[in-house]
Computed example of a mutant assay.
Amino acid sequence: MQLPSILYKYTTASTAFLVLENSKLRWSSPLLFNDIAEFQRMPRFHPRVADSYKLLTASIVSAVFDGVELDEVRLTHQAALLLNLVKLMASEGNITREDILKGLTGEVSDADDKIEVSLRDYVDKLGLSTARVLCVTSENDNNAMWGNYAENHAGCVFGFRHIAKYDTPLQEAARVSYSAERPIVGSGLDFLLYGNTPELRKSTLHAIFYTKDQSWAYEREWRVITWRPNEAEKQVSDFLFFSEELESVTLGARATVKTELRVRELLAGKYPDASLYRMELKGGKLVPALLS
């Protein structure tokens, strides 16, 4: 999906003042997030690895007896050994493919559990307290977001543009995917044939860091992640942004006059190119209205 031209950050009024005064946004460790499952949903294979050992032997046998193509260069050491063994057995001519399938098909019933444990161990060793995540969204008129993250409509929403010439972090924002089940990153058969490929590693890490349960889909989240190994004890980092990045500030429908005056003052002093809006309720729908 194409990166939105503007990404939004919901805040309380007091946080909005701090952001505008300091030109800094707070990036936090996922350990502080309200979703306790952040970075904890390990992806899976379908079919499972445990169910793919028969498929592995069948694929090797089909390659030898039927000429079904395999990418032999990419095979794991174990799969290559199995292929060579089947070729040798077939060349002797005194054994049937049924005998080979019966004799060489193994099973590791807890293979998927072991893979999940290994993934969890890997993520734990990364140190989630050193991860820094900036969470933004593609919508500035989300009623639930205003209620949950912007002080029950009394806060603000910042609109940020990503600027190529400054190499701003939001250029690297990736969309969060939502699913009721743990994400699937490949088939167990491909894993047994070709192992932990660079493509699989990339999709696995993306699944861990950029997927959430379906119940959070209303957030329409995009996020940027960095790591700060020397700041584990803080669990938060405040990073500067360029004044040009701030495209707009939108006041909530319940924002006070005092909040509006303070935001106007701060925008005039440091962000002359940023527009100011206020949300209005029209026909039961939130609509941003430009303020003069």
Rank of each mutant, 00 (worst) to 15 (best):
P47E: 11
V49K: 04
V49Y: 00
V49W: 01
A50V: 01
A50W: 02
D51F: 01
D51Y: 04
S52D: 07
S52Y: 03
L56I: 00
L56H: 00
T57H: 00
A58M: 12
A58F: 08
A58Q: 08
A58D: 14
V61Y: 01
V64Q: 10
F65T: 10
F65M: 04
D66G: 06
V68F: 11
V68S: 14
V68L: 15
V68I: 14
D71V: 13
D71T: 04
E72Q: 10
V73S: 05
L75Q: 00
T76S: 01
T76M: 02
Q78W: 09
Q78I: 08
A79S: 12
A79G: 03
A79I: 02
A80G: 01
A80M: 10
A80P: 02
L81E: 12
L82D: 02
L83F: 07
N84I: 15
N84Q: 15
L85T: 12
V86D: 02
V86Q: 03
V86P: 04
V86R: 02
K87T: 09
M89E: 14
M89A: 13
A90R: 09
E92P: 04
G93Q: 01
G93C: 05
D99P: 03
L101S: 11
L101A: 01
L101R: 03
K102D: 02
K102Q: 12
K102V: 06
K102S: 15
L104A: 03
T105M: 00
E107A: 08
V108N: 02
V108H: 07
S109I: 10
D110G: 11
D113S: 09
D113M: 12
K114N: 11
V117A: 12
V117D: 10
S118C: 14
L119S: 05
R120D: 03
R120T: 07
R120K: 15
Y122I: 12
Y122P: 15
V123N: 07
V123M: 09
D124F: 07
D124R: 14
G127Q: 11
L128F: 03
S129C: 02
S129L: 00
A131N: 10
R132N: 06
V133F: 09
V133Q: 05
L134H: 08
L134Q: 05
C135F: 04
T137N: 09
T137E: 09
S138Q: 15
E139A: 12
N140H: 11
D141Y: 06
N143R: 11
M145N: 03
M145F: 11
M145Y: 05
W146S: 03
W146D: 00
W146V: 01
G147C: 04
G147Y: 11
N148F: 13
Y149S: 01
Y149V: 07
A150F: 12
E151K: 05
H153I: 06
A154F: 06
A154Q: 13
C156D: 02
V157R: 14
G159W: 12
F160H: 09
R161T: 15
H162Y: 05
K165C: 10
K165Q: 13
D167L: 09
T168S: 14
P169R: 04
L170G: 09
L170R: 06
L170D: 11
Q171N: 13
Q171M: 10
Q171Y: 03
E172F: 14
E172R: 15
A174L: 15
V176K: 08
